[in-house]
Design a protein around this nucleic acid. Structure first.
Lengths: 361, 361
DNA sequence: TACCTTTGTGGAAGCGCTTCCAGAGTTACC
DNA sequence: GGTAACTCTGGAAGCGCTTCCACAAAGGTA
């Protein structure tokens, strides 16, 4: 019984008294094998506890049945949810996932290069980072399918979240609650989400005839994640509240992310400012904490994004020559306590309806 | 330049005017190649943009440089942190990770079987689930290294968290704050953590000369994760508070997990019971929310567990015949607001020191 | 000088599969 | 009876690497 260590199709063939071709056909469900032969071979497979050799299969069939996922350090809730969507689809179709978590930017190129090794993976999902231009040609040369998620390049299938629309909806929601002086707390404008969310904020204001004021945007890029963190949020809020007062103080804030908002709530509490009575807050992401902190926020359909990414990749693996597609998800407005809409509703003021999520390509 | 699609060592050899053996030696940094030859070959590697074929390497070298991670659905904060530790070590030594997230129990066997394919992976990390006995022999037969994390089997290296110690420390902390009537909110006793944490609770009580009372343990296994969820926590707390009152009501509770504690806080609020003034709370896990909710809790060093798991696996891959090891982590007590220790400290009552974390094998 | 060792090199022999081609046997139809 | 078509099977030829063995050249030692 210890024999199972290295059973090959040659052993199976000898044991069953057939050729290796026949064995292979049995194993791969090919037609043109008599039922009797197939049954005999399969019983021997079982008896000898045969395990195919993955490397040999890859070499001979030139398919790996594996895709690699290159993702920024995934302790972030966004990626965990997305990865779950990817994983579920992969499990359905029996694909393996190679996980590459990027902690240092230098690793990006390393993992991309590794994914390009022939016979390593059949496709790549690339998340939220800037694809180095030098790799564009390489992927095309190797004809290695790739889907960009939360990122964009015209040469590849891309999936994006409409941050701009999200920023617009968030701000519009505050406007429709009657606020006219709305500030924004943002992270580093070097990141695309920060820029786009601010553009939406600006567009909503201007659409309501309210001029965009640069001094109403507090930007902190301190700490990790380019300012998308709790401490930066707290500092920004304190800065906002210590530099304004009385009627010169905004009545609402749009905050670029939930983590910042969590910090901002602490900052507001420290300054004795009540949320939402004194200051209405809408943020972005709908991470797990947002529900607990009762944040009104823009929800990104993370799980669905993961599923779609995987589906796009599968489609691309089937047809390498189709034109690249661009899919967009529009974030949902999730109304909770922090925007004060509940209080409004009690006072008989109608709450604006949420825009329906749209997914177009 | 489109040539790079399928460059093999034969192409390199021809181009450089050397044999394939020499090329292979250059690529793998073997000795016995003259510096001149090596330089020439490597320059051609660069020029033709050669990429080794992973499948062929695996087949010929019988090493895959990959390990598989079989993990319960990882949206759980515990696994995310642990996986990060695993990932970081893997990146350091250039190993690839194959991620298998288990959503349905049927998938466990499938992923185990897949990992057993020859030439698929060099080792397996298996998390928090019961290893089917039928696989024990198979792994031994195939001599496939495996490390169990948050699980145990005498035949394999195992890494555990001392839930018993944790339950003891949590309860002991409450005792040292002067509480004599301490309840426990627990999840299904079918799970090992729930049993062990309760054993620690009991041991601490009895060590202090307080009899263990079964009616002081509220168990709810409703909902998902065997009762380790928010709703179960809320229900348990309400049950505790509605069945007791006045001096017959406990002054403190040890709750088996943070998620339950979050729900329990809501339940207490609904019953008008203040935490920690009316009821002190200590829970378990130190998930991200715990900090926000100011829970005093038992922290599991998740990242370190991940790192250690990977290191154990590497050691096992080097020496297959060493005796299986068992490593334990003792959870840390993290003191926050929910236990009332802060108030005690203000009142001049010394806060007990935290036990130092111990890691023994 | 004779002999051993070291260094550098070429290439055959695998690794264990898939796939293709050829051939044997069977059935079908004119 | 002859031809065509179809079913089933065996096994060679690759896939692209690593590793080993053989051998040549150069250096070292007595």
């Amino acid at each position: 019984m210890l024999s199972s260590m290295g059973v090959t199709i040659y052993d199976l063939a000898r044991e069953a008294g057939v050729g290796i071709g026949t064995v292979s056909r049995c194993l791969n469900n090919h037609p043109h094998v008599s039922p009797a032969t197939r049954a005999r071979v399969l019983s021997i497979v079982k008896r000898l506890n045969y395990q195919p050799h993955a490397g040999a299969q890859r070499l001979a069939s030139r398919r790996t049945n594996t895709i690699s996922v290159i993702i920024p350090s995934f302790t972030n809730y966004f990626y965990v949810q997305t990865l779950q969507g990817v994983q579920d689809v992969a499990a359905d179709i029996g694909m393996d996932l190679m996980l590459y978590g990027v902690s240092h930017t230098a690793q990006v190129e390393h993992y991309l290069r590794r994914s390009l090794h022939r016979g390593h993976v059949d496709g790549v999902l690339f998340f939220s980072m800037i694809l180095p231009e030098s790799f564009v040609a390489r992927f095309q040369q190797m004809r290695l399918p790739m889907v960009l998620v939360d990122a964009y390049h015209p040469a590849f299938d891309s999936i994006r979240v409409q941050n701009n629309e999200g920023g617009y909806s968030a701000t519009h929601h505050l406007l429709s609650l009657g606020h006219r002086d709305i500030a924004m707390i943002n992270a580093s404008l070097d990141t695309q989400p920060a820029r786009e969310r601010m553009d939406g904020y600006r567009r909503a204001l201007e659409g309501a005839g309210i001029p965009f004021r640069e001094d109403r945007v507090i930007i902190s890029s301190a700490g990790k994640n380019d300012g998308f963190n709790r401490d930066a949020g707290r500092d920004s809020m304190r800065r906002l509240l210590t530099t304004t007062s009385g009627p010169g103080r905004p009545t609402a804030v749009f905050i670029a992310s939930d983590v910042q908002a969590i910090g901002a709530l602490e900052g507001a509490r420290a300054e004795g400012v009540r949320i939402p009575e004194d200051l209405a807050v809408v943020s972005f992401d709908d991470i797990e904490l947002a529900q607990y902190a009762e944040l009104t926020t823009m929800r990104q359909p993370m799980y669905e994004i993961g599923r779609l990414a995987m589906e796009k990749l599968i489609a691309r693996m089937k047809d390498a020559d189709a034109a690249p597609t661009l899919s967009s998800f529009v974030p949902d407005l999730i109304v909770r306590r922090s925007c004060g809409a509940a209080a409004h509703a009690l006072a008989g003021i109608p709450v604006p309806s949420q825009p329906a999520p749209v997914q177009h390509s």
